[in-house]
Design a binder for these strands. Structure first.
Length: 568
DNA sequence: ATCGTAGGCGCC
DNA sequence: AAAGGGCGCCTACGAT
């Protein structure tokens, strides 16, 4: 193993890092072991010199890179690409290796279980990362076996081998070129997720405390105090009951019974059903107000603040493709913070947010992935629904509902009539959706335009009830119909996000939030205008890289704000 | 006690 | 306008 690798930009170079130990690299048939307490320093140097495409096993490396802020743009994350290829999301390095080598999953060594008594005696040489049965050794996967830079070089070498087996699987997909490009963009998005988790979302804690107090009352000083605050909140609803009686408002069945006694016979007590009754019945109005307050105090109250907000940063876990169709997910309320609380998200001193959200992204994505000429031409203007409405001879609202209904699988209501018009005027797009739905009903996996496998699920084999089987098939049809659009939109969005991440670096701009079609970029005030222009320009760049149909137009609302809640 | 599920609601 | 797709997270409750 030589000391100093000679890398070039076109190379694919596998890396494995372990702080305190060093850095292992592998390229072609060569491996390099560099013993150093701070491997990121070396990696940063190599990256500046040559910027090859870095290859690594999984999120563990992304997390290390995010922590040491190594500015990497081009990468390949084996676990992320595995999720693209196989669908689903629960996976591990051990399972990935096994599937790439056609090893039985039943014999997969269990991580973290010290079955000392059952240790087989023909376990082989523990310094070899590969067991005699072909599986990877758990201590190598969880890193406890990485005790030297040489070990890291070996581990990087295995990542290279995994890539050699993985890349050809992308070639088997209908659009191999596109699938490879998705593999690269999804890998970079995974790195972005590690960085967002690390950086956190800027929050003004003072504002947060004040707002929570407004919605949920003061911070409880004791358990008894907490009970008192809850009882007071409940009382505002119960006071409307005649005769007065105790009702557990947190139990939907009791609430339903309470409403029935009040003369409202409802199948459930969901807010949209209650809203139309609220005007006439003060009890219902009070119940809706109660639910909002209860929501904030239980989910986004002081406990949430204490757990997830520290030193002005809200931090949660980010995953780049956990969603069924490959959407990003985030914990700690980052994706579902109530609108009423978004004013707590505030840029640092001398900083602002550039906030941008893609307009009508899903129907535009449908146009791109189907190539339907009529739908493509509808994307050319600012508003996509107006030309559709004109073509169908309906109002814009009806056209919108119909298009959304077609993508979500709606079967009833006002949109049903307009749906027929969609079928005759946009047969290519509607045909693609129907084809996906048919796959879903038949319980066959579907693929996004970028090549992501979206897994279907089977019925309970023991459950022979025909109605339920039919209902399940219909549900899979709606699911598949939506997944090919939602999933492709997620892929396009991620390309946009990583483009902004890359181009924002020289402007000190940091992507701090991704929300399906919306980006929040934390930016020094001085470069705000430049970042806003870049974010806008990045849409075209992302579309050029991603879009299967070049003519489709995408656009975004971009604004410069101090707080997330501002502007739109 | 601990787990999974259902109803509910927040967001897209 | 209709109530269709996705996610995370809360409480209550029944099964284990």
């Amino acid at each position: 193993m030589s000391k100093r690798p000679d890398l070039s930009r076109s190379d694919l170079v596998a890396i494995a890092l372990e702080p305190g130990i060093g850095l292992g690299l592998a390229r072609g048939d060569h491996q390099w072991a560099i013993a150093t307490p701070d491997p990121a320093v070396f990696l940063r140097e190599f990256n500046e010199e040559a910027a090859p495409r870095w290859l690594w096993w999984d999120r563990a490396t992304s997390d290390l890179l995010a922590r040491s802020r190594v500015p990497i743009d081009r990468c390949w994350d084996i676990a992320t690409v595995h999720r693209l290829l196989f669908g689903g999301w629960r996976t591990s390095v051990g399972e990935i290796w096994a599937r790439l080598h056609d090893l039985p999953l039943e014999t997969l060594p269990q991580m973290g279980q010290l079955d000392l008594l059952e240790m087989p005696d023909d376990d082989g040489d523990p310094s070899n990362p590969v067991q005699p049965d072909g599986h990877l050794r758990p201590e190598w996967i969880n890193g406890t076996a990485h005790t030297s830079a040489d070990d890291l070089a070996t581990w990087a070498g295995l990542a290279l081998e995994a890539h050699r087996l993985q890349a050809p699987l992308l070639d088997q997909l209908p659009d191999a070129v596109r699938a490879h490009s998705t593999a690269r963009s999804e890998s970079a998005a995974e790195l972005l997720c590690a960085e967002m988790a690390q950086f956190g979302l800027p929050v003004n804690e003072e504002t947060a405390n004040r707002l929570i107090a407004e919605f949920a009352g003061p911070r409880a000083t004791s358990v008894a105090d907490e009970d008192r605050i809850r009882a007071e909140r409940d009382e505002k609803v119960l006071v409307h009951l005649t005769p007065r009686q105790p009702v557990n408002l947190r139990n939907p069945a009791e609430v339903k019974a309470m409403l029935r006694r009040q003369g409202h016979d409802l199948p459930d007590t969901r807010a949209w059903r209650l809203e139309e009754l609220a005007e006439a019945d003060p009890l219902v109005a009070a119940l809706l107000r109660w639910r909002k307050a209860e929501r904030i105090s239980t989910t986004y109250g002081y406990a949430w603040l204490d757990e997830h907000v520290h030193e002005g940063r809200l931090r949660g876990e980010w995953t780049s493709s956990d969603g069924a169709a490959g959407r990003m997910t985030a914990s700690a309320g980052l994706h579902n913070l109530p609108a009423a609380m978004r004013s707590i998200v505030e840029a640092d001193e001398d900083h602002v947010f550039v906030r941008a959200d893609l307009g009508q992204v899903e129907p535009r994505v449908l146009a791109a992935v189907s190539g339907d000429p009529a739908l493509v031409s509808a994307t050319l203007g600012e508003d996509l629904y107006s030309p559709i409405a004109a073509r169908l001879g309906v109002t814009r609202d009806v056209a919108k509902v119909a298009v959304l209904g077609a993508m979500y699988g709606a079967t009833t209501g006002e949109s049903a009539h307009a749906l027929a018009g969609l079928n005759t005027n946009y047969p290519v797009a509607m045909g693609l959706l129907e084809k996906a739905a048919e796959f879903g009903r038949r319980n066959e996996d579907v693929f996004t335009s970028g090549g992501r496998r979206v897994r279907m699920w089977s019925n309970n084999p023991g459950d022979g009830d025909l109605d339920r089987a039919v209902a399940a098939a219909a549900a899979r049809g709606r699911y598949a119909r939506n997944a090919i659009v939602q999933g492709a939109a997620a892929e396009f969005f991620k390309v946009w996000a990583i483009t902004v991440r890359r181009r924002g670096r020289s402007l000190a701009a940091e992507v701090v939030l991704c929300l399906h079609d919306e980006l929040l970029v934390h930016t020094p005030e001085a470069s705000a205008e430049a970042v806003a222009a870049m974010v806008r320009d990045a849409i075209g760049e992302a579309a050029h890289y991603w879009s299967p149909t070049a003519e489709v137009r995408f656009s975004a609302d971009v604004s410069i704000v101090k707080r997330w809640s501002e502007a739109k």
